[in-house]
């Protein structure tokens, strides 16, 4: 009988200790712990750059039409390009007149305005 009571007592003691340990582990963090967690969250960079996921997440910007693109060439350079374009187009037209075929009419030139 004494042995039985001793076993029951030890079992209850172990159960109580286990319950206390479980409640301590599953309880909410205290205020000090919360502050430090918030501080850690603030200290973390808001949007860390990601290599491959970045492109997949960011929607691609729509293409800007050619006629609305801001000028990136100097006027003098553009004038030279226009002059070269006209010379090449005129030469192509002359070649068409020498041998009038659909192919010679629409043959491509190396004009910088078209390539």
């Amino acid at each position: 009988m004494e042995l039985f009571l001793m076993v029951v007592f030890v079992s209850l003691l172990c159960l109580a200790v286990t319950a206390l340990a479980f409640s301590a582990a599953s309880s909410e963090p205290d205020a000090a712990d919360r502050v430090s967690a918030e501080q850690l969250a603030e200290a973390r960079p808001a949007a860390a750059p990601r290599f491959f996921a970045e492109d997949a997440v960011t929607p691609p910007s729509p293409p800007i039409p050619l006629n609305r693109r801001p000028p990136t060439v100097r006027p003098e350079a553009l004038l030279l390009q226009i002059e070269r374009h006209i010379r090449l187009e005129q030469a192509a037209a002359e070649a068409f007149l020498d041998r009038p075929t659909p192919e010679s009419l629409h043959g491509r030139t190396t004009s910088p305005l078209l390539n």
Partner: peptide, 21 residues
């Protein structure tokens, strides 16, 4: 006449390029 023909061809070439664009 030569100028007319050259410019006619040039004009059509530009039209073709515009249609392609």
């Amino acid at each position: 006449g030569h100028r007319l023909q050259v410019f006619q061809a040039m004009w059509l070439r530009q039209m073709q390029q515009m249609v392609a664009l």
